[in-house]
Amino acid sequence: MTPPNDPIDDIFNRSVQNERLSQLSARSKKHRQDIAGKTPKNGTSTSRVHAAKGSRSTALGLAVVSTLGLAAYLHQAAQSSSSAAGLAPSVAPEISVAPTTTVPQSPTTTSKSSGQAPTTTAKSTTSKGLGDGSFTGNVSTNRFGPVQVKITVSGGKITAVDVPSYPSNDNRSIAINRNAIPRLVQSTLTAQSANVNSVSGATYTSTSYKISLQSAIDKSRAAG
């Protein structure tokens, strides 16, 4: 059995960039000074304005708009294409994943995002079918970078959704089959007390371990 490539092995195979690590060290020092400049311990928030924090709400808002925009676009595409009957129920609701609307947002971004969808969807009442070819959407920038979506239409159906640029530094393109368009499945948290071998998510400190579920499992294992 050959263990798959450990990413770190690849790193050792080329010269580690000392310059980059020096930059890392410098960035770290700068952050430390920034933190030292902030109000210490007592927990009251500082009067310092977080530029990044402000832009965060904006970015989340943009992400919502961008998601709903895509959903609306696909919805439109699905609605207006008579031959893509199966697409509407499977695509539109899944992409518009409600999730981001539950993220704490400023009232501005929420109203912005909820206002966006109907407007775009309303346009979709045009009865024109989808034209064949490739169509690239506008670049939408969210907090993690630019997102741009390209669809390929063949025979009036969306046959591929590509994301030529997405939040990452490299511009790799990933092709997503239309049956596997990214979507999140939402449900309600439930509690199970099933028998398990191990538990993920319990960052057990040495102390808490003694009373943890993991400890109970270990004991039952030892007795078994």
Binding site: L189, T190, A191, Q192, S193, A194, N195, V196, N197, S198, V199, S200, G201, A202, S212, L213
Partner: peptide
Amino acid sequence: WRIGIRHPSDPMASA
């Protein structure tokens, strides 16, 4: 392997 994902508010339960 049966692996539980911890319930956030109930350490004895799996989500």
